[in-house]
Amino acid sequence: MEKNVKVLVLRTAGTNCDGETANAFAHFGATVERVHIKRLRNREVLLKDYHILAIPGGFTYGDDIESGRILANELRIHLGDDLAQFINDKKLIVGICNGFQILVKAGILPGNLDKGQAAAAAGFKQTVTLTNNDSGKFEDRWSYLKVSGESVWTKNLPKVVYFPVAHAEGKFVPSDNAVLEALKHNQQVAFTYCSSEGNAPVYPEAPNGSIEHIAGITDVTGRILGLMPHPERHFYFENSPGWNGQTKKGLLGDGAQVFKNGIEYIKGNLL
């Protein structure tokens, strides 16, 4: 395999954050390709040729029926084996916003909740969902997030990060309490909404009514991450709403580290 990190940014009708997501990985030297699902289904492009699968934000198929459902089914039914292999090869997956909704609805996240087994071992079954915000509307606003868990994606992040959310269906709901407890026990909760000081949030700090304010989760291995907020939209220092007047610490914003982590993990483990 080439000595370069290869990232596949998946797209289909209605994907719309593919450009900035690709830019975020490319900034750290990865070779990034934006690939239409059609080419994967026709096997013109093979998932196994890549190290990272990124499912970006957007409105795939218009959020018709419910957000993420149609692409989730395509992945599960038509690319299920490829995905299971990809996961078992210890490669990385990240789903942002609509990408998170897709991972959840395909049952890839949170995946198997038994720490002893590989994520894909139990097959893909949906156990949590992302549903309508309590406010009943799409909202674009900036959220403080408390970082937790043990994911490769969240290494070296500060305790509290500042990313924007932009969604109508971001309320995290587990199927039952056992799932929620397992997520917490397994350190699978990666991001929770919080106040600017890292305390318990109230609306609009908690933008959607998520159970236990969950904003992002991983699989048991920490290699698959899904989150509603957009780290790629706080990639540069000047993307934040309060940058003007703050001391500049560098070119990049809070979100950049997430993508850097992905690249460094691959370089350290799979190249």
Binding site: N16, C17, E20, N23, K137, F138, E139, D140, F235
Partner: peptide, 11 residues
């Protein structure tokens, strides 16, 4: 707030 004013990442 109902409009996505930050998509494309250049805000």
């Amino acid at each position: 707030r109902q409009y996505d004013h930050e998509v494309q990442g250049g805000s």
